[in-house]
């Protein structure tokens, strides 16, 4: 009975995590993917295939950058792949607490509570700074910016 409830609670967490925005550029580890896999494990839910594919990509990219470590090797050889995810200690209380926090994050509770004005978002020293950053990130960091604007930054230091 209780394991069923844990499953339901974990499902709520997973569906909330699925609504999280996708990373603009590819990182070695992704909060969204790793947590979806984690809570699927805890609740005994099947991991969505799209996430599973991404997770595999994650794992291969981190492995190529980490050093060889005897303990790590032992863990990988003698245990299940999802060994790093702790499962046993989760109770309904803990999971509902986690859900509450995740919901606050998803709703940008603190961003709204401590609202800042345009002074910081369009700084007078660098009015275009954030626009240019987001513009580049939205292209996935793949497309280089124009020759002239790049030189303007080099010469004046301004964005």
């Amino acid at each position: 009975m209780s394991s069923n409830k844990i499953g339901q609670e974990a499902k709520k967490l997973v569906s909330l995590l699925e609504k999280f925005p996708k990373d603009r550029i590819q990182h070695n580890a992704t909060f969204k993917t790793s947590q979806i896999i984690r809570f699927c494990n805890i609740g005994g839910i099947a991991v969505p295939t799209s996430v599973l594919k991404e997770g595999r990509k994650d794992a291969s990219s981190t492995k190529s950058t980490t050093k060889i470590d005897a303990n790590e090797n032992k863990r990988n050889t003698f245990s299940d792949k999802d060994d790093a995810y702790q499962k046993d200690l989760f109770t309904i209380d803990i999971l509902s607490q986690q859900f509450k926090s995740l919901k606050n994050i998803a709703n940008s509770k603190w961003e709204k509570y401590y609202q800042i004005d345009n002074k910081l978002l369009e700084p007078k020293g660098n009015p275009n700074y954030y626009n240019r950053l987001l513009g580049d990130l939205d292209k996935g960091g793949k497309q280089k910016e124009g020759f002239l604007t790049a030189w303007r930054t080099i010469l004046t230091g301004k964005y």
Binding site: P21, S108, E111
Partner: peptide
């Protein structure tokens, strides 16, 4: 900076 400009706690969390 990306998180600040996106005005989203989810991006800041990641």
């Amino acid at each position: 900076d990306e998180a600040l400009a996106s005005q989203s706690d989810a991006v800041l969390a990641s």
